[in-house]
Design a protein around this nucleic acid. Structure first.
Lengths: 272, 272
DNA sequence: TTTAATATTCCATATTATGGAATATCGAAG
DNA sequence: CTTCGATATTCCATAATATGGAATATTAAA
């Protein structure tokens, strides 16, 4: 791993965040010092020092048994606060709750995280279904599954291609998703305005998803409904797409607060 | 604010975490550079540099408008993963779900965060109630409300006193909670083994809570049930306390993985 | 347009983090 | 119980990094 450097001179931070990333990406059993050293290309003392500082600050926890490092409680707290503030979760919670209630399906909120898509919130439907991301916090490469496809497809073409290229090896783990099929789905999603998986990835589990757009930034998240593919009919799709569109229309204005410059008196005068 | 130094030499990290804390503590509108400089006792360039490095790494986001700093998307992702893994949330989710289902009340999971108590997860009951912490991510000073009281009361006496002393000014915002009354409640919680608020803090809203203990660390979280105080009867308390006790008995073993040294052959032999 | 307030950049310097080497601890095998 | 290999932790002189005062730029208000 090559640790990405921030423009600001803050190497220690770069390294600390890189280590957090490595721990986050690892399995939930936690990561050993050795493994983190190797994967980060940091030497033992440096790695050890930073990891322990992170532990002292509560960003990491440490399994006293196996001497393994895991994400810490404080991150839970930060995460909860971040998701809550003017963050996505609080904005979308009513929508998820309504969708869950009126359809009885599983409603999910996914957010983009680099080349991945992460489940931020989830309201389980009447029928408990397995999903690609599992529960909250689970992630998939962008492109896999309707929730992530909905974001990927609406990124600028160039970025989209780069991401697909980078994710190719990881997408290969899904045999149903050939390169050709992926581009087909992307194209289809763009044309239709929503992403649909009729049960290709997880047999029997279908999903519909639409992106949440932020101006100048693009799709940052998506809302999805997941249900048994046996129930998939054109009417159902139509109904759920309409529902998603409706809920998104309610949320997007809050994600795109009006740019004051566009409405300030000066600017209005300037338009004369 | 005096920035806490880690034993390991990692001042930059200390400062970065301190800034994250300040942003997390601030309101959800975000914090300005100036305010963060003042509150952290860091000078402008240093503060600016660290904040922007955090932004580059996605731990903070920045409001392009008001130039304010907020908790970033990546923290949401980390938080979700932390809460999910062998973290509290995933351990407690089934319990919350069961409690919510069998009682129809609002079930909450709170975790300790320094002198505060944060809502990590919440399953709303049939009747939507206002709670002290609001939704997920909300926090209250330790001591305010049954969920936080359940943790505070079972901390070592000394720590408990220190926290109460530090939190005094913030607790003053709750007129119903005089110093005397707080200590009464702490004592009562210790004796009963559970914390009870019969509607003192939020008129009409009652709550019962019990702590989750980790050996050597103490109470790190609590499970609570919240309901209309009008429905509060001794029988209801008894039933809910039994339910909480039951669920906690199921969770605690997983939070306290058996210390292998205590069960290893050597040790068994050693006990002869 | 001017002014005050806030944010950003610069850069020589002092302070900090670095990492090789030594040491300690753990766990498995004999 | 002892040995041995592997992993984790500590030490410290040095190199490299972050620091912060001062200068500059940007923004919002007057």
């Amino acid at each position: 791993m090559t640790i990405p450097r921030a423009k600001s001179g803050a190497q220690l931070l770069d390294r600390a965040v890189a280590l957090l990333d490595l721990v986050a990406d690892g399995n939930s059993e936690g990561e050993t010092l050795k493994s983190l050293c190797e994967r980060s290309n940091l030497n033992k003392p440096t790695c050890h020092r930073i990891l322990n500082a992170l532990v002292e600050h509560g960003l990491l926890n440490r399994d006293p048994e196996g001497r393994r490092y895991r994400l810490g409680t404080k991150l839970m707290v930060f995460g909860a606060k971040a998701a809550n503030g003017p963050g996505l979760r609080s904005q979308c919670q009513p929508a998820l709750e309504r969708m869950r209630r009126t359809t009885g399906e599983t409603a999910m909120l996914m957010a983009r995280d680099g080349d991945d898509s992460v489940c931020i919130d989830r309201y389980d439907g009447d029928c408990l279904l397995q999903t690609l991301t599992g529960s909250i916090g689970g992630s998939v490469p962008l492109g896999v599954g309707p929730g992530s496809l909905a974001m990927l497809a609406f990124l600028p073409e160039e970025q989209c291609e780069e991401i697909v290229a980078r994710n190719r090896p990881r997408i290969a783990a899904y045999p149903a998703l050939s390169d050709e099929r992926l581009w087909q789905l992307i194209e289809q999603t763009r044309v239709q305005g929503y992403a649909l998986d009729s049960g290709e990835l997880l047999p029997g589990v279908a999903g519909i998803s639409m992106p949440l757009h932020v101006v100048e930034t693009g799709p940052i998240a998506s809302l999805s409904l997941t249900f048994l593919s046996a129930r998939l009919t054109p009417e159902l799709i139509e109904r759920y797409v309409a529902l998603l569109r409706e809920e998104i229309a309610l949320i997007e204005p809050y994600l795109n607060p009006l740019d004051r410059r566009l409405t300030s008196p000066e600017r209005v005068l300037g338009q004369h």
